[in-house]
């Protein structure tokens, strides 16, 4: 049986991990390659690298990082941030990335999803969506949550899947940073409305939150950053505990 997946997320700027990591025993906590290697050894099922580098020239640093990660790490990883063309994706996949995630650029030009799925296959196209519950409607936001759109989360995700997205990475802005748990109602509805894997993001604070998102939220994978970076939750403990609760895990 297919397992649920635990996915640490690393924010990358100019080829370095940002947003703070608090790892003891790493020679250099800012080095994404070393952190990725450590997470993979601790049992992470996949990794996500989110590049927040603003300038085009610095993207070269990202490509070099992707290649170094691919050389060293023997589990799959996704790269996202600033991807807006077939050429961008081609370079990242050739450097060794397994999947790419697209977000704002797909909203601006939905045809990009079709183009990438046709060229590289749906399995490597992750549609990342940031959304916020306003009143009783989940609204899609862009540019790291700074720009509101008219799009409804569920409509947009359905359209994205129809166009060829092979996986959805949904971040709830209401939950992100709260450590109060994932947005399980919206996640469950996504799982019921589209037939591709859903990655839950935003809100992880305790092991119970992961249990809840896999059971109540029907999520296929759960992504988190700070609880792993700051060692509030050890991946080994998390996976053991989830398995003990009857959730299928790769141990």
């Amino acid at each position: 049986m297919l397992t649920k997946r635990i996915i640490p997320c690393l924010d990358i700027k100019d080829g370095r991990t940002v947003k703070g990591v608090n790892f003891v025993g790493l020679r250099d906590a800012g080095d994404p390659v070393e952190l990725a290697d450590r997470y993979s050894k601790e049992g992470a099922d996949e990794l996500v690298f989110l590049d927040i580098t603003a300038t085009k020239e610095r993207r070269k640093t990202l490509i070099e990082m992707v290649e170094k990660v691919a050389r060293r790490v023997n589990i799959p990883f996704t790269v996202g941030g600033g991807i807006s063309s077939i050429e961008d994706v081609n370079i990242l996949l050739r450097a060794g990335a397994d999947k790419v995630s697209i977000n704002s650029s797909a909203v601006k030009d939905p045809q990009l999803i079709n183009d990438l799925a046709n060229k590289f296959g749906s399995q490597c196209v992750v549609l990342a969506v940031d959304a916020k519950l306003i009143g009783d409607e989940w609204k899609v936001f862009l540019v790291g949550g700074r720009v509101e759109t008219e799009l409804n989360l569920f409509d947009w995700v359905k359209e994205g899947v129809k166009r060829g997205a092979g996986e959805i990475l949904f971040t709830s802005m209401n939950n992100d940073g709260t450590k109060d748990g994932f947005a399980n109602d919206a996640l469950r509805r996504l799982s019921e409305e589209v037939n591709v894997p859903i990655i839950a993001s935003g809100g992880a604070g305790t092991i119970q939150h992961f249990t809840d998102t896999f059971i109540e939220g029907k999520s296929d994978a759960a992504l988190a950053a700070s609880v792993f970076h700051f060692k509030e939750i050890e991946i080994v403990d998390l996976k053991n505990e989830l398995a003990a609760q009857g959730i299928k895990m790769r141990l």
Partner: peptide
């Protein structure tokens, strides 16, 4: 079930040298 299948699943009924040293139901 969800398509594509993405993630870790087990292999069993292993035959052949290709799986030498690999336990049944490895991920």
């Amino acid at each position: 079930l969800k398509v594509p299948q993405i993630g870790w699943n087990v292999i069993n009924n292993l035959k052949d040298e290709l799986f030498k040293g690999i336990a049944e139901n490895s991920y």
